[in-house]
Each structure stands twice: as C-alpha cells, then as structure tokens.
Amino acid sequence: MRLRSFILGALLVLIFFSAALISYVWTPFDITQIDIKLRFKSPDFTYWLGTDHYGRDMLSMLMIGARTSIAVAIVAVGIGMLFGVPLGLAAAAYRGRFLDEAIMRGNDLVFAFPALLIAIMITAVYGPGALNAIIAIGIFNIPVFARLSRGAALSLWKRDFILAARAAGKGVTRISFEHILPNIANLLIVQGTIQFSLGILAEAGLSFVGLGTQPPIPSWGRMLADSQTLIYTEPQLALFPGLAILLTVLGLNLLGDGLRDWLDPRLRHER
C-alpha cells in the first residue's frame, strides 16, 4: 500500500516535471497565437484538452503553467532552506543563549503572519508579480526550515560522535556543517517536498487573486481566475488547471510521505 502510493506520487511528479521541461523545447501549439475563431473548443484529437477563451490550446498552456509553478516553488523552497537551515543550525549550536532566543523569537514573529498576509503586503508595496510571490512564499519557508533544523540538530549535539568531533578540536561552525547537516539532510529533503507542494498551492492562490504571475505568462492559478468569469457558460475551462494543481500537489505529498518512510526505517512499520 505504502509502496504503491509512493510510486503513484513519483509518477505524478515525473509527469509534471517532464511536461514543464518539454515545454521549453516543444508544446503542441504556440500559445502566443491568439485565434478567437478557435475559442472554447471541446477536447478532440487536435486539441486534447480543448481551447480557452482566446482560442489557445489548453494543454500547451498547462505545460507552460507547470513551468511557472515549479519554478516559483523551487526558488521559494530554496530561499527557505538557504536562510532557514543556517539559522536553525546556529540556534542549535548556541542553544539557550541569546542568539538562539533571538532566532526563535524572530521565527515566532514570521509565524504570526500567515504567508498570505506577507504576500499581500509585499505585493501592495512592490506590485504584483511572480518574483514578489516567490519572495513572499520564500520568507514564510524560512522559519519552517529553521525550526526543523534546530529541533533535529539539538538531539544530535548530545550524541557521542559530536563529542568526539569537539574533542578533535573542530569548531562549532565546522561541526554544524560537516556532522550535523549531513545527518539532518533526510529530514530537510522530506520537508522540502512538503514545502514544495505548499509553494505550488500558494503560487496558484496568489495568481488566482491577481497578485502572482502576471499575464501573458500562463499560470495555473491565473487560468482558474480567467475561467471563473466564464463558469456559467464554459465550465470545462475550470476543470483542467484545477486538476493539474491537485495532481501535482497530491503527487508531491505522496512522494514526501514515501521518502520519509524510506529514509527513516523506524517509521516503516508504524502507522
């Protein structure tokens, strides 16, 4: 059962990553070609998923949309890890001292702002756009990774092999990066998968309300927003972008669960 859902997750993720990569070299149709005569076509053998209100091929739009979603989510998770992990490691290394307290209180502060509010404030200031969405989602990822790394690192600091490293004369920074980091990498990968799926949902949500990716760049959230006004007459337009988000996020979550079980054998027989 577990293995099956892991394979399903991996397969879904593979499909969407391939779609995004292939879209760089090939899409079934050119989405910059607007042909109003072709609009609202139902799925057929030429247009597999039909066409939208500008007569653009839905499949091509979704493929390029996958690119947008994945790019935003990767950079946002990257920001979270790049800042969060060193902060968490530092907090653990100087546990109980001022630096630890300052980092953790800073974390609490960011947690007090729901991610969406940060995004809204940033777009209110700098205007909507994919870059601002990335920054907003990324900022919210920082405390997630900081907290995770601190918690995991704290238990490692008590272990004998760290004591041995200290006895060998290694400094706090070297121990953190040479011994602690490799040992918490598993956890970071699993959390990364989860944050990745949350990032895709967040990007879709922000683009849906017009704060994320701006036209003409296709984005799944944006496509759903466009379909909302047409839902009475052309409800099928809302179907495929939503399914794309659902299946990608589902795939990432299943993959993350599977990875966690696989990387942490203790969990294999639980739950």
């Binding site: 409800p235 659902l246 589902l250 299943l254």
Partner: peptide, 29 residues
C-alpha cells in the same frame, strides 16, 4: 481507514478556491 486516509490526501492537495468553484458549479449553477 484506507479510504478515509486516501480522501484526506485529496483534501489536502485540492486548492480550496478551485474546490469553491466546483461547489458553485454543482450546488449553485
């Protein structure tokens, strides 16, 4: 248990604004 867990996987993955649109489509339209 398996069915409930599978449903919750779907529930976590579904974007709620899309689910909202589907609800409008079914229950309102």
């Amino acid at each position: 248990d398996t069915v409930v867990m599978a449903l919750t996987q779907l529930g976590v993955a579904i974007p709620n604004f899309w689910f909202a649109m589907l609800l409008v489509l079914l229950f309102a339209i």
